[in-house]
Design a protein around this nucleic acid. Structure first.
Lengths: 349, 349
DNA sequence: TCAATCACCGTAAACGTTTACAGAAATTCA
DNA sequence: TGAATTTCTGTAAACGTTTACGGTGATTGA
């Protein structure tokens, strides 16, 4: 048969005058006679043979692909994770399949279910919500999954979390030290994983610090700039006195707040101190530079990748799911005062 | 045989009391008797059957995956492309495999070569340099490839370009209208695709406008913030008078320049007007907001995805490679004056 | 020199699909 | 009712690998 299309192991075998088994052995470094090896390598080189990864995957039940699923890869938090995950996977010989699921919870579940097609050996997912369906699929799925963001029940899957409560406390303590007492809070949707955690953390933190927070100093919207601006507008135009500090549930919200404050002629940090969360690249770029609670996005990504690779590579020992918690840090910039100190929070309870 | 592991088409066939061919037919919507369909769907549902995509790919020689390769996905330009590409691919039923190659040219070539493994049906690549090896691989590769960024020879591959020269001209014209005459230029590496194009465009544009550019008003470094700051430092400390306008080869450089100008007490745009390139999200966030030449990153991504999907889906007609050129736009913000006008350049020659 | 051992190699089966082909069953028509 | 036609179904081959198994030829030891 004349060689049509790309050469396969069969083409090489014919060209080298050996069997396909010998070709495979040479290609996989199994012991063969020197002469055989020479002829196979020669033929393979001459014909430009490249092994077909699909056939390999079918035979070996390993795709050497790992999926990473987030709501929106444009979000700097997920991007920071991706930037850590990608090189680790590459170094371990895995390709990365990227899913941007969008805000629709059903799509996340769809990704989980899609793993059944076995196009990937494992999955790292950052769910925006965790529904019963998520839980059911997590139980059912066979491939290893690492979830970033707190999971409800124990033992569902490997889990990388962050300590939102601790992070919020660090921000509140910092503001308290600056003498701020009227703290406002602008949040994204409270029914999401991060929105819920941060709202709860704010409630708990202010309560513990003995601060009373008026209703007018709370605003809930989305995790975007408009929400930050809208929150400031409501607070400024409402009956209550303007807060002297704002905690924003992410940096985008904080940027929107900065814009709106500037537009109203309010000085930051003079009139209002502003703290963001996530410490994305934007925080360093904005003006004034934004104090932000780092929730260790990059670190969470790194841990997730490590956990998954561990499960995949070190035998198939189905050990119990592990939980890793990443410590938050407060990165102080000009939006709360001039000091450029990094408080790693190591002394907190 | 008891069903071990996930159910396959064989498991379903046994459970339904039909042949594997019938199962396949039902699953693919080919005509079968109503009774057969019922039994197969029933068994499949009961056992939670999910087709194995690897086996499908092997049989059909279609992976339904498309690779996207860039130097660094953290770069907002590539991110903007990705955000357009991803949903288009998803809608067309393709998964996205992401490669971040790093600055190493050899890795880009490796990605091209890797396509021979047939893990993807096509590739969109944004080369940072185009070497002879790139060209050779592009000729050799069988799967369709779309290159973003100008290719040297014609007909190598589908190609999406931007008109850097035109974009630079728009910026220069804008600065000229503001009365600026001493234009400085801070570039990234001139031996990269974008660096080369932008350097060339600046040379041509200033020549055409009859502007003389002194050596001291040129700086070349990397495409990062430090380079912007360093460029400003050199110009300010050099013997020549400080330029009254700076064109920066991307927004990151421009942000670094803004920082350095502020640090030296120079007013933007009063003393120095600053223009960035790429019009990334950062431009809108910075202070002052940055006038920037949009090179249509999102649009380029969209075109690339369309070209590729076209080739993949509309028959295997191996038509001649196509070239799409995206028009630049100047987005005017405060860093060159207060006006908030978008000049879409439709009147330019 | 002959048997026992060893190194290497080829045949064939398997991974989970899709599909060509031929045969069986159902339907149509006279 | 019987033949001709149509519709449906099952068997087997194929996609490109890896690998168990058995066989061949060379090498060793007496």
């Amino acid at each position: 048969m004349a060689a049509r299309g790309s050469p396969t192991i069969t083409t090489i075998a014919e060209a080298a005058g050996v069997s396909i088994a010998s070709v495979s052995r040479v290609l996989n470094g199994l012991p063969v006679r020197a002469e055989t090896e020479r002829r196979v390598l020669d033929a393979a080189g001459r014909l430009g043979y490249v092994p077909n990864s699909v056939a390999r995957s079918l035979r070996s039940a390993r795709t050497h692909q790992i999926a990473f699923a987030v709501e929106d890869i444009g979000n700097p938090v997920y991007l920071a994770m991706l930037r850590e995950i990608q090189p680790l996977l590459k170094a371990a010989g895995y390709r990365l399949v990227l899913h941007s699921t969008g805000a629709d919870t059903a799509e996340e579940v769809e990704v989980l279910r899609g793993l059944g097609q076995r196009y990937a050996d494992g999955l790292i997912i950052v769910p925006i919500r965790v529904t019963d369906e998520h839980v059911a699929e997590l139980r059912a799925v066979e491939a290893p999954v690492v979830v970033i963001g707190s999971l409800p029940g124990d033992g569902l899957a490997d889990n990388v979390r962050t300590d939102s409560r601790r992070g919020v406390d660090m921000a509140l303590r910092h503001l308290a030290e600056l003498g701020r007492r009227r703290i406002g809070f602008i949040n994204g949707p409270a029914d999401t994983v991060p929105g819920g955690a941060r709202s709860e953390a704010f409630r708990a933190g202010t309560a513990r610090a003995g601060l009373t927070v008026e209703d007018g100093a709370l605003h809930e919207g989305r995790f975007d700039r408009e929400t930050g601006a809208e929150g400031v507008r409501r607070m400024a135009e409402g009956p209550a006195p303007m807060p002297d500090a704002l905690l924003c549930a992410n940096d985008l919200i904080a940027l929107g707040a900065l814009d709106a404050l500037r537009a109203r002629g309010l000085d930051v940090p003079g009139d209002v101190a502003v703290v963001g969360m996530d410490d994305t690249d934007l925080a360093a770029v904005s003006w004034p530079p934004l104090t932000s609670v780092s929730l260790g996005s990059a670190e969470r990504g790194r841990h997730a990748a490590r956990l998954l690779l561990d499960r995949l590579d070190s035998g198939a020992a189905p050990s119990a799911p592990r939980v890793v918690t990443v410590e938050p840090r407060l990165v102080v910039r000009a939006s709360t005062g001039g000091a450029r100190v990094v408080d790693n929070g190591s002394a907190a309870g």
